[in-house]
Every structure is written in structure tokens, then in C-alpha cells.
Design a binder for these strands. Structure first.
Lengths: 196, 196
DNA sequence: TGACACTGACTGAAAATTCAGTCAAACCAT
DNA sequence: ATGGTTTGACTGAATTTTCAGTCAGTGTCA
């Protein structure tokens, strides 16, 4: 059974997914968690404190579902692993939706907030490198810089598609198709090197 | 000479680029435009009205600078026209920066704000179709759905790269290279149809 | 009984929105 | 042309709304 603080953090994740980081109202959070506003301040220093801990809470969850899949099951072919890893972020489940919109919020906020920039850049770099590594497994002969470029494009595209999905511009299934198409195109480009 | 409303919208674009959509204070906008707060409400129904019209204003401007280039100069080859049109959004000039960050904010806000969704979807659709048309000129034999998919990917990627650029994740020159690479890849895919 | 978890009612400040009017230009009948 | 009337653009000063954050307590359980 979740402790009260956890219960509040879970509620916060839901509210953020619904209203955004900058749209989170302490009163709404209290209602969502089924507690009084005062209790929020009892468990967390202030609104910013809630936000900080919620972001940690969310990124903890993200690592979990990205990593999950291991149950000593049939090892995935590199190509499948790549595709799966990218498409994982385009699923219409509460958890992924919450994570994606929080990520989008962070990205958008970072444009106006120096403080967030560094953390965001670091997380992004790690992610890009992971994808580059997966690409490398599918195309072992491709030169590293091409792999890096392809990974940057695929991850940036994923962020773009994610935003469109969340803002109602495209259906999730369509977004997934587009993403698969991009993976195809990038892999084709890596197979037949161009002046890329 | 800009009418008062236009003057206010220009100021709004600047304020949004500086503070974000959700950081826009009516008072700050009034100060930026050099008018009273009440005038804002005289010309626009409410804060949301300002936001909505600013979005239109911005996408109008984007079309303009995308369209500008005509001075009866040497007509561009389709391929160049496509590339130029997309790379136009990745320039480090005040106007483009302003447009891009306002656009990014609007996109991010639309995730949580029903009201902006529709306008945004319409503007996006127009843009995607323009790009699809340009792609069609370069690859006249490609089937329309493939053109549409490629256009969606290229524009979504551009939005993603734009955000990374604005949030300090990549250099503008690198973003441009990545964009060129994506155009190459998509055109290659359209030349040799795949199960895309 | 006292430490802990918790609440309802409240406060102060910041923002959005409205109101009552001013002013200058356009319109128009003489 | 001139005095009277109307109108649209605009403002300063409220008023109202929205929020984060506080406080004085209540219940409870060990």
C-alpha cells in the first residue's frame, strides 16, 4: 500500500499529465489525491518541492518501463529491439502519457529556464547514445558519426511526434507508423552511405 | 504602419518568445506594447483571445518569410526550394527565433489547452501540405500517401530539432545538417518505394 | 499524554478583468 | 466655416478571481 507521500506523487503525475507542470494547482492536486491542501505542505516544503519530487518519481518510472522486458524471454533481434525501444514512448497508456507530457513540459520549459537546460541536455545525450548503440547493432559497418546523426534525428523526431500526438494533431497509431517509416528510412540510409 | 492590434500582436510574440505562453502577463504585454492593459481587452476578448490571435499572427509571419524570396530572381530547382523552405526555420535571427519559440510554446500549451488545439491543428495541416507539395515536385512519381507521410515526418522532425536548438541541446549548424540529412533520407525513400 | 497525520478556514499577494469616463477625429446640418 | 453630435480608441483606477501558503486546532494510536 502506497504511503501518503507516494499517493500524492502519483496524483501529481496524473495532474501534470492533465494540466502540465505550469498548470498544476496545489488545490487540484489535493483534490486528486483526496487530501487537504494543508497536507501537501505537511509532506512537501512547497509547490516547487512537489514538482521536484514528482519529476524524480516520474523519471524513476520511465527507467523502469524502458528496462522492463527482460523476463529471461527470447532475446530480441537488434532490429526489433531498436524499433521496440523507440515505439515504447508512443503508447496510449496512462503511464507513458504522463511521462511523455512531463518530458515535453520539461523540454518546453527549458527554453525559458536556464536551470533545467543542463539536466535535460545530459538526459538527452544518454538517450541518443543508447539509440546510436542500437542502430550500430543493426548496421555494424556503418561509421559512428552516421549512427550518431541518425540517432539524433530519430530521437528528435520522436519528441516531435510525441508532441503532436499529445496535442491531438495525430492519432497514436499513425504516429507509430510514421516512426516506423523513419526507422526504415534511416536504416536504408545507413546501409548505402550517402553524403549524409 | 502597424495598426494597434498588430502592434500588440507583435509585442505578444516578443513576450511569448521571452517568457513563454504561460508566462505571459497581460500587464507585461501592455507594457511591451506601450499601451494600457485595458486596451488589450478592448481589442481582444480576453487573455486567451490574445493567445489565439498571436498564434495566427505567428503562423502568418512564418508563411510570409517562407514565401519571400520571389524578387523575380532565378527560379529555384524543386529540390532547393524544398530544402530552403525547411531550413528557413533553422536560422539564428531574432524573427525566426521568436517565431520558433512562440510556436514551440504554443505546441506545448496545446497539450493542456483544448482551445489552442484546433487552430494549431489547422496551421500544422497547411504546413504539412505545403511540404508534401514541394516533395511532390521533386519526386513526381511518388504516391500521395508516401509524400504526406514524408512531409509529416520532416515537419515533426523540424519541430523536434527546433526545440533542441532553442533549449540549447544542439548548435544551429548541426541542426541544419541533421535536417539536410533527413531530407536526403526521405527523398531516397521516395525514389525507391519501400513498405513505408 | 504526547507525537504524528491530518483538516477547515483563512490570508495576502498577484493577476485577470471590468468600469467609468476622456479625447480627438469624423460627420453633418446650418 | 461653425457649432453640435456621435463614435472609436484609449486610459486609470477599481473590482474580482485565483492561488500559494499558513494556522489553530482535531482525532488517533502507541
Amino acid at each position: 500500500m502506497a504511503s501518503r507521500s507516494t499517493q500524492i506523487l502519483e496524483a501529481a503525475a496524473r495532474v501534470i499529465a492533465r494540466r502540465g507542470v505550469r498548470g498544476l494547482r496545489v488545490e487540484e492536486l489535493a483534490a486528486e489525491a483526496g487530501v487537504s491542501t494543508a497536507l501537501i505542505y505537511y509532506h512537501f516544503k512547497d509547490r516547487t518541492g512537489v514538482l521536484r519530487q514528482t519529476l524524480e518519481f516520474i523519471s524513476g518510472r520511465a527507467e523502469r518501463y524502458t528496462a522492463d522486458r527482460d523476463p529471461d524471454a527470447p532475446p530480441l533481434a537488434p532490429r526489433e529491439e531498436l524499433e521496440e525501444s523507440l515505439l515504447l514512448e508512443l503508447q496510449d497508456t496512462a503511464e507513458v502519457r504522463e511521462n511523455s507530457s512531463a518530458w515535453g513540459e520539461l523540454r518546453a520549459s527549458a527554453v525559458f529556464d536556464e536551470v533545467l537546460r543542463e539536466d535535460l541536455a545530459r538526459s538527452t545525450l544518454v538517450w541518443v547514445q543508447e539509440v546510436a548503440a542500437l542502430l550500430g547493432q543493426v548496421r555494424p559497418t556503418a561509421p559512428a558519426p552516421s549512427l550518431a546523426a541518425a540517432a539524433e534525428r530519430l530521437t528528435a523526431l520522436l519528441e516531435g511526434l510525441s508532441m503532436r500526438w499529445l496535442s491531438g494533431g495525430v492519432e497514436i497509431t499513425h504516429a507509430r507508423e510514421l516512426m516506423r517509416g523513419a526507422i526504415d528510412a534511416e536504416l536504408a540510409g545507413l546501409a548505402t552511405p550517402r553524403k549524409n
